[in-house]
Design a protein around this nucleic acid. Structure first.
Length: 257
DNA sequence: AGCACA
């Protein structure tokens, strides 16, 4: 798939030892020849070092910059330039209204949390000794927090026994499943009848249906025509209490696919 | 290698 054009140039293979203010200042002088720069973002943490985002006020400027500066030796290292894969906040801020800007940031933060959850699940997978038995049921108690637990990694089995189990796919906690058009409701109180649920979830854009699960108390699925409907329904019903006294706080997540 | 914006 061809790379998506973007106002922002993603720079990598930058010399990691140069201080951030020096780096951004240098990038600024270098790139300002190709257009107006709204912002340059560079950080020094482990995951982000050696990279920078140069936000131009137009995609044409970004394109020129990529063409011209590609491979340029900066601090003895050839820069590698691409379009950034998502829009910068600064771009959305100037190109949209306040509401869209806020929505953009909310989506971005949600996506960021989601990625962190995936990384956490990924890290678990690598630390985890083969589980004693049975498939994981995905009840990660608190995987949002870095685990401080001392690694009590059992030494590998002395008999040279190898686990034949295929490594389980990393289980992302419910909360961080990617958006899709079907919501998964949990912890529904007994009084949450199909009528009640239809009443609540039916008021959102693109509502299709509520599906209770025969023989399973407390859960249901709600389907929408499209993702946007499901997203707004989720955002507006999250943590809603359906019980009498403010009990029965419903958990609303996207369906695991 | 690594795609951020408290």
């Amino acid at each position: 798939m061809a790379e998506q054009r973007n106002n922002t140039v993603y720079c990598r293979n930058l010399e990691e030892s140069v201080k951030i203010p020096v780096l951004t200042a240098t990038l600024e002088t270098l790139f300002s020849q190709y257009g107006n720069i709204l912002e340059i973002v560079a950080k020094k943490n482990l995951r982000a070092r050696g990279q920078a985002f140069v936000v131009f006020d137009s995609v044409d400027a970004a394109e020129r910059a990529i063409k011209e500066v590609q491979g340029f030796n900066l601090f003895e290292k050839p820069m590698v330039l691409q379009y950034a894969k998502t829009k910068s906040d600064a771009t959305v801020e100037v190109e949209s209204n306040e509401a869209e800007f806020e929505a953009h940031k909310r989506r971005r933060l949600a996506e960021k949390e989601r990625k962190q959850a995936i990384r956490a699940a990924e890290a678990q997978k690598h630390l985890k000794r083969p589980a004693q038995s049975g498939p994981s049921h995905g009840l990660a108690a608190d995987s949002s927090r870095p685990t401080k637990k001392a690694a009590t990694a059992a030494p590998s089995a002395p008999g040279g026994l190898k686990s034949t189990a295929a490594p389980a796919a990393p289980q992302i906690p419910d909360e961080y499943l990617p958006p899709n058009k079907i919501l998964f409701l949990q912890n529904l109180p007994d009084n949450a009848t199909s009528d009640i649920l239809n009443g609540i979830f039916g008021s959102f854009e693109g509502f299709k249906e509520v599906r209770l699960v025969p023989g399973r108390k407390g859960i249901a699925f709600v389907e929408y025509e499209n993702e946007a409907g499901a997203i707004s329904a989720k955002e507006n019903t999250q943590g809603m209490s359906l019980g009498p006294d403010g009990s029965g706080v419903v958990k609303v997540t996207y369906q695991r696919q």
